[in-house]
Design a protein around this nucleic acid. Structure first.
Length: 378
RNA sequence: GGGGGUGUGGCAGAGUGGUCUAAUGCACCAGACUGUAAAUCUGGCGGGCUUGCCCUUCGGUGGUUCAAAUCCAUCCGCCCCCA
């Protein structure tokens, strides 16, 4: 059944597990990192290079695709995978994150949904849970997400509770809408619920149990990595991940940095997505097994070594730090692709290493070795 | 030869007596970025330290003034127009 999770092996040391997610567009080995392609394209990276990097599933965003090009065009193309020629698994976010990211742009929330003011032309658009699901059916990704409200980390308890309960109500409506029309794409699509509750443990626990009651194909944890400290995020996770049944995929939305991937896999997370590899790449930052570097830094001007001596991506195979430094400093468009590609490759390769370590049941040792290298000051 | 203009921090370019270490942009240096409003944003960008002050800067020199990037004289450089 599409969207189903199968556990292959459990770590003997922690809650981490090796598994697969079954989709109409391929079987995905987990733990997995999903590059973000908001507009249907992972910014800067041609599909062929994405395939090469080992990506098996990418994200797209309902709000952004609804605004441009609009769902009619995507339907006409035969779905998003045809439209962008990715042809592998995809996941769409519901637009719930835009409740957070567009919170200062005339966005209004009521019990029925969210009115967004387009960041492009200021026009107003109302997303209800039903509307979000319809859009996501039209887009046609393999895994679609419930419409939720993602709130800032400094929200007070009262607001966090109200919002968490609202997201629960919306989750029920999403499920109802998802299964309303049996002739729709829902046959090949699966629907994930999103656990909310901000940083408040009792709210998170309640949200988790209630989501489980509604019963989804998989469970996401949302509303994290929105500004709170790492220890705070880890604490929330360690309190709820174990509540989610073993036979369901667990998806931590919007995470993360390399260190977060290791840490959160340890808590039992199976799926991650993050804009960091592409956005930071475009901003001149490269992730390497020896730590983060800012390729813009003067010290790389005449450093002819490769970005990461342990990396075999196209960028590292061919180009030096000095050349990449030159491309970034002169704003040559090529650097957007080269750095984004390297970073995405790095994250996906990292997940591959994590899976290998789980396969040989040496997760903690591998994690220690990674951290040792990643944080060593050269 | 005659007339006019102009010279400001790495560059471009404001400022035309005190609120000027001198706007703004670029360049340069560094930092941030976590379900993408992002090829973006933030900070720094003369020197010193006891971090509040001190010293040094607007072509050079000299002057007027309590006070000069700003006014005057002179020198130097550059540009334009007419012969």
């Amino acid at each position: 059944m599409y969207g189903s999770y199968h556990i292959k092996k459990k770590s003997s040391e922690c809650a981490a597990r090796l598994g697969t997610i079954y989709t109409a567009n391929g079987i995905i080995d987990t733990p997995v990192f999903m590059p973000v392609g908001t507009q249907g394209s992972v910014k800067g990276i041609p599909i062929e290079f994405l395939h090469e990097s080992g990506a098996k599933i990418i994200l797209a965003n309902s709000y952004h695709l609804y605004l441009r090009p609009g769902t009619e065009i995507i339907k006409k193309a035969g779905g998003i995978q045809k439209f962008n020629s990715w042809n592998k698994a995809m996941l769409t976010d519901s637009g719930g994150f835009q409740a957070f990211s567009l919170r200062n742009m005339g966005r209004k929330i009521n019990n029925d949904g969210i009115e967004f003011q387009s960041h492009i032309d200021g026009s107003k658009h109302f997303f209800s849970p039903e509307k979000s699901i319809q859009i996501q059916k039209d887009i046609g990704a393999d895994i679609i997400m419930c419409f939720d409200e993602c709130i800032p980390y400094n929200s007070d308890y009262q607001y966090a509770m109200k919002s968490m309960e609202l997201s629960l109500e919306w989750a029920k409506r999403c499920k109802k809408e998802f299964y309303r029309d049996s002739s729709s794409h829902s046959i090949t699509q699966s629907l994930f619920g999103i656990i909310q509750g901000s940083v408040y443990n009792d709210l998170r626990i309640k949200s988790t149990y209630e989501m489980l009651n509604i019963d989804f194909d998989g469970y996401a944890i949302g509303g994290l990595s929105v500004g709170e400290s790492k220890s705070c995020m880890y604490s929330v996770l360690s309190n709820i991940v174990h509540i989610i049944p073993e036979n369901k995929a667990r998806y931590l939305m919007g995470v993360g940095m390399p260190e977060d991937l290791w840490q959160c896999v340890e808590y039992g997370i199976d799926m991650f997505d993050c804009v960091i590899p592409t956005r930071n790449g475009r901003n001149g930052q490269a992730f390497t097994s020896l730590g983060k570097i800012n390729i813009k830094n003067m010290k790389f001007k005449d450093d002819f070594s490769k970005l990461d001596p342990y990396c075999n991506c196209r960028t590292c195979k061919r180009y030096s730090k000095a050349y990449l430094n030159h491309l970034v400093k002169t704003k040559e468009a090529l650097y957007l692709t080269l750095l984004s590609l390297h970073n995405v490759h790095f994250m996906i390769n990292l997940m591959s290493d994590i899976r290998k370590s789980l396969s040989s049941d040496t997760f903690l040792e591998s994690k220690r070795n990674f951290f040792k290298k990643y944080y060593a000051k050269n």
